[in-house]
């Protein structure tokens, strides 16, 4: 009988471990994978794409829930994402663009060709703001609440179904 119990030990050990793994699954993955979650949007002071004389900073994001989209003319996926961003803008979401590692001329051409859903575009030619955001490519999108706190992070292309399924609900959630 004692030997039987001994033989059950591996099973018991595994069940305990499995329980912990299960619990690990239900923990919010964003607690781990984005260090910026629930932090303030990194401070910046950059010119805008539209006007090389106008300088903007963090106060740009205050007062209203805003989607910040990091894009670049060199990024083919950003072109694919444009219809979804235009759709979001039509639905009354405030969008700010970050033109990342680009030239002013190419960035402007891009918006002229594919449409401009952004209220204003922060021009980030060296990628310094992108670096502070922990961006490693484009497109990436951050949802910032009225107090300038990052609330949601979307890496990569926003698919048409993402607009209704995740982005809009997130925007609504942080509006109040």
């Amino acid at each position: 009988m004692k030997r039987r119990l001994l033989l059950l030990l591996p099973l018991l050990g595994f069940l305990v471990l499995g329980g912990f793994l299960y619990q690990g699954l239900s923990m919010n993955p964003f607690d781990r994978d984005s260090a910026l979650m629930a932090r303030e949007f990194p401070a910046f002071e950059l010119t805008t794409l539209e006007d090389s004389e106008r300088t903007v900073d963090g106060s740009l994001l205050e007062g209203e829930v805003t989607l910040v989209n990091v894009w670049g003319e060199w990024c083919p996926t950003c072109k694919q994402e444009m219809p979804q961003l235009l759709d979001l803008a039509d639905r009354g979401v405030r969008l700010i663009g970050v033109d990342y590692k680009d030239t002013r001329e190419k960035g402007r051409e891009f918006l002229a060709e594919f449409g401009n859903p952004f209220e204003v575009n922060v021009f980030d030619p060296d990628g310094s703001l992108g670096f502070d955001l922990g961006v490693y490519g484009a497109p990436e999108t951050f949802l910032v609440d009225a107090d300038g706190i990052i609330r949601y992070h979307h890496t990569g292309y926003i698919k048409p179904e993402d607009v209704r399924e995740t982005i809009l609900p997130e925007v609504e959630k942080w509006r109040d």
């Binding site: 033989l7 059950l8 591996p10 099973l11 595994f14 499995g18």
Partner: peptide, 9 residues
């Protein structure tokens, strides 16, 4: 794993 270890026991 669970079934295998049960079978083992």
């Amino acid at each position: 794993v669970g079934l295998s270890l049960l079978l083992f026991a």
